[in-house]
Simulated assay, not measured.
Amino acid sequence: MQLTFLGTSAGKPTRERNVSALALEFEQDNKWYLFDCGEATQHQILRSRLSIGKLDTIFITHMHGDHYYGLPGLLSSKKLDTAFRPLTLYGPTGIKKFLECVIDVSFENLGYTLKIIEYKAEETFGFDKFSLKVLSLEHSIESFAFYIKENDITNRLNEAKLRSFGLEPSPLYGELQRGNCITFQGKKLEPGEFMLPPERGRRLIIAGDNSKPEILGRYLKEIDLLVHECTYTQQDYDHLQAKVLHTTAKDLGKAVQKRHVKNVIASHINPRYNNHSIKGTDVLYHEIKAYYKGRVFIANDLDVYRLSKDGMVEKL
């Protein structure tokens, strides 16, 4: 499973960061999924190894412009690229009205089928390789997180055991995987005798803007990865004249430590933390680590991370 960060800035683009967008890919798949689509996301896709033609589904976390203003351009370019693969878009209430106002979303105009689904909190949707549940967050408007659970693999054959019986890979393997009995050298072989234990699917949460990571509560337990905003250090947030509903590095660190989250990737970085200022992103990293013992990464644009089957995250 790979995650490509196409935009990691909070609120507005900077010289170093574009606004929110994240791509998710699964192994042995011919499509990918986009979470949020801030302005100029299509430009970021051009700078990555991703193809608009293989984009299958878009998920929008909330109706703040830095998370969805890139949709009209992306959807239009898909037509110009003659990438006519159907596309489904999941978003909160209002996303359909926005797109219908900005562009003609009919098949006659786009040249491909665009299905728009406005979700509600606690809804669950099923996909080829995973299920996704919509979770409410706390922000200045309705904002949501997506709890993604990869399907467990339940049809893994114990090939070593089959070979010990003299049965080499053949179409009979497929019959066992489908739950059918087979006969080999006059012996009846039951599928249950040759199956490995189920392999647990990976679990992760991709969150939109949120002032209280603790609101995710029990969903943080036993996940392999949390992708969450980390807009300010606590000190900088405390000195803001007008408070905004965003997460501090301190609050993020405390919440994930309490729930023993394995890996955290922080994004949605305030523009004040940059390579040309006194305060770089290291201050965010160290503040999270002051409260959290797990693995932390501060995402940059075009970073690619791999979440392995054993739940380890590495930056590629």
Rank of each mutant, 00 (worst) to 15 (best):
139 H>E: 13
57 T>I: 07
120 K>M: 04
60 I>M: 06
176 L>F: 01
210 N>A: 09
216 L>H: 00
139 H>S: 14
176 L>S: 03
190 E>P: 01
37 C>K: 02
300 N>G: 04
153 I>F: 14
202 R>N: 12
130 F>I: 00
18 N>F: 14
159 E>T: 12
106 S>R: 10
264 V>G: 09
156 R>G: 12
158 N>Q: 00
61 T>Y: 05
154 T>S: 05
185 Q>T: 10
30 N>I: 08
136 S>K: 15
50 L>F: 01
312 M>Q: 11
124 T>N: 15
255 A>Y: 11
250 K>T: 13
152 D>M: 01
138 E>C: 14
205 I>V: 01
301 D>P: 01
146 F>E: 10
253 G>R: 13
46 L>Y: 15
126 G>P: 02
186 G>P: 15
65 G>P: 02
124 T>S: 15
167 L>A: 00
151 N>I: 04
94 G>E: 00
101 C>W: 14
178 R>F: 04
167 L>E: 01
195 M>G: 13
234 Q>H: 14
106 S>Y: 11
213 P>C: 05
71 L>Y: 08
206 I>C: 07
53 G>P: 06
305 Y>H: 06
166 G>A: 03
108 E>R: 10
29 D>K: 10
60 I>Q: 09
194 F>Y: 14
15 R>A: 06
112 Y>G: 04
259 R>L: 06
102 V>C: 10
64 H>N: 09
273 Y>R: 04
302 L>F: 12
209 D>Y: 13
50 L>R: 07
126 G>L: 14
124 T>I: 08
18 N>L: 15
41 T>C: 07
247 T>I: 12
257 Q>E: 14
23 A>F: 09
279 K>I: 07
163 R>N: 08
180 N>M: 06
153 I>Y: 07
146 F>S: 05
73 G>R: 11
316 L>H: 05
63 M>G: 02
288 I>R: 10
265 I>T: 03
87 L>S: 02
87 L>T: 05
248 T>S: 12
271 P>E: 04
171 P>I: 00
51 S>Y: 04
47 R>D: 14
14 T>Y: 09
152 D>R: 00
173 Y>C: 02
51 S>A: 07
290 A>H: 10
41 T>E: 04
129 K>W: 00
